[in-house]
């Protein structure tokens, strides 16, 4: 017997109530419901980010209230605000310190494209220095928009080929070791 989304198989005849599924589905399911955001609060958008975490919009309904300011404990960087060239260096360094797998949400016009700050000091979009998964429009985006973006991110995580990504580096390392041996 198979459930509709075909990622889950369950047969009551098998003893011990076993559920059969794909490794991808399990890993993604775990990952997408335990996103720990790292609030990269840079400017005005950070206030809306705070609103998302506060009493009215309440991001904890989506299992994401565990805001971690330490990049090593977080897996989703929400870049909320204007990234200047002076700050870009720091944003990139923090991104590099985050553990894999990691995602980036560019919140607001500034983080997405530089927004209304077309000037000598502003980086024209954070995607020039880090890969971005979800862009949110608005100056600032309403909290609902950010929540929507986070749900989009969950969908995206759900479609990832996690096992392949997990084993790919291992396979590559093995191949490299083999090549070295032969040489």
């Amino acid at each position: 017997m198979k459930s509709e989304n075909t990622t889950l198989g369950y047969n009551s005849k098998v003893e011990g109530e076993v559920v059969v599924t794909q490794a991808d589905a399990v890993i993604n399911w775990i990952r997408k419901h335990s996103v720990w955001p790292m609030p990269m609060g840079l400017a005005c958008c950070a206030i809306e980010l705070m609103a998302v975490g506060a009493s009215r919009f309440d991001i904890s309904r989506f299992g994401m209230e565990v805001m971690r300011f330490s990049p090593r404990q977080a897996d989703c960087m929400i870049v909320s605000g204007t990234v200047t060239y002076k700050m870009a260096e720091v944003v990139r360094r923090i991104y590099e310190q985050m553990a894999e797998p990691k995602w980036v949400v560019a919140m607001g016009a500034c983080a997405s494209t530089g927004g209304m700050y077309r000037s000598y000091a502003t980086l024209q979009g954070v995607d020039r220095i880090v890969p971005v998964d979800v862009y949110v429009s608005g100056c600032p985006p309403r909290p609902e928009a950010l929540l929507d973006a986070m749900i989009k991110l969950q969908d995206k995580i759900g479609r990832e080929r996690s096992v392949k990504n997990l084993t790919a580096p291992k396979a590559a390392a093995a191949a490299a070791a083999l090549a070295e041996k032969e040489a």
């Binding site: 840079l42 400017a43 605000g81 204007t82 200047t84 002076k86 700050m87 720091v90 700050y117 077309r118 000037s119 000598y120 000091a121 502003t122």
Partner: peptide
């Protein structure tokens, strides 16, 4: 400081 210097006066 200066990490949020966006160039308002020039703009």
């Amino acid at each position: 400081i200066g990490y949020l210097h966006r160039g308002d006066e020039k703009i």
